[in-house]
């Protein structure tokens, strides 16, 4: 049988395979490919950067939980000049489409960093990390607010010609509405899930364990929730989806693609099993061959069926959750 076609195009970004990494979970200080060539993956999503220097959150920042990681790193960042002098030359040398993730505390900060990144001319796309408290609007994350997300993405849209990916915060109640907002505002793709908020309290001290008190949860523990959210967003929008949340191997990749993801990101598993992505790529290829699937894109949305109703009673649905 012919080798299956693994390539895909998402938001206009051509990927030789649908595997990528979650922002902030792969590479550091401009060091990539410590375990395998970064060119193995279909696209590289880099750690979120800001327009200004930021120390990140106080330690402790990580805490192990059953099948997962509780963390609050706080997106530490060097200043822009350092990024340009140190990281950019390294990124330029990589032969893989690079999606730069960015964040800001205000719309203006987002727009500024989007503009600067596009001007560099080295990125295949920009991912807006919407999991940041909107300091001008009472500190609610942009990603938890359909209107704020809309305005932010619209302004970012006007600031760049590059493919724009909106990375959503995992919020059950507003997920579809936020997804539709960012699509309407011009996002070319949606990426989800970012790590949901979480807290662990030490029963002995009765105080939160993580320095920032509030952290996030990632890894295997969140996978079923993340798969569901990808499934829901797939039904709500037409733009393609980068799916992630607890991916460890090729079976998870297939699960996310079946839920509706066109590309799938490896996150926390990179810390534990750094060869997980290349191994999954091999296993995925074998799976496609064994199942007579010639094009990996055939997996996308396979879990959906003709029943067009969401399994939520109509009277409990928000208007925007009416199936598309």
């Amino acid at each position: 049988m012919r080798a299956p076609d693994l390539s895909t195009t998402i938001a206009g970004i051509r990927m030789k395979n649908p595997l990528t990494v979650g922002s902030g979970t792969y590479g550091h200080h401009g060091v990539f490919g410590q375990f395998y060539p970064v060119e193995t993956m279909g696209a590289l999503v880099t750690k979120t950067i800001r327009s200004h220097r930021w120390p990140g959150n106080p330690p402790p920042r990580v805490h192990e939980v059953p099948s997962g990681l509780h963390s609050s790193v706080g997106i530490p960042c060097n200043d822009w000049d350092y990024f340009v002098a140190h990281d950019v030359p390294i990124l330029k040398g990589l032969k893989v489409p690079i999606i730069q993730s960015v964040i800001g505390r205000t719309e203006d900060e987002y727009v500024e960093i989007v503009r600067r990144c596009s001007e560099l001319g080295i990125f295949a796309g920009i991912e807006l990390n919407l999991s940041c408290p909107n300091t001008k609007q009472g500190g609610v994350d942009f990603g938890y607010d359909p209107e704020a997300s809309f305005h932010l993405v619209k302004r970012a849209r006007d600031a760049t010609k590059l493919p724009l990916i909106a990375k959503l915060a995992p919020d059950y109640s507003l997920l579809s509405r936020v997804a539709k907002s960012v699509e309407a505002a011009g996002a070319d793709a949606i990426s989800l899930v970012n790590a949901p908020r979480a807290m662990c309290i030490d029963y002995r001290t009765r105080k939160p364990i993580i320095g920032n008190r509030v952290g996030a949860l990632s890894g295997t523990a969140i996978k079923p929730m993340a798969v569901y959210m990808v499934w829901e967003v797939y039904r709500a929008v037409r733009v393609p989806i980068f799916g992630m949340g607890g991916v460890t191997d090729y079976r998870d990749v297939i699960e996310f693609m079946a839920a509706g993801a066109r590309a799938v990101a490896f996150g926390t598993i990179n810390y534990v099993d750094p060869m997980a992505l290349p191994r999954a790529l091999e296993d995925l290829t074998t799976y496609l061959q064994e199942n007579g699937i010639e094009d990996v894109n055939e997996l996308v949305g396979a879990a959906h069926d003709d029943r067009d109703e969401l399994l939520i009673p109509a009277e409990n649905r928000l208007e925007s959750e009416v199936p598309v």
């Binding site: 590479g27 200080h29 402790p60 920042r61 990580v62 990681l69 963390s71 530490p76 810390y271």
Partner: peptide, 16 residues
């Protein structure tokens, strides 16, 4: 310090 990766990728193991 508590670590997630041990090789510099997660920024989880900082101390002041």
């Amino acid at each position: 310090q508590h670590m997630a990766c041990g090789f510099g990728d997660c920024h989880g193991c900082v101390i002041a």
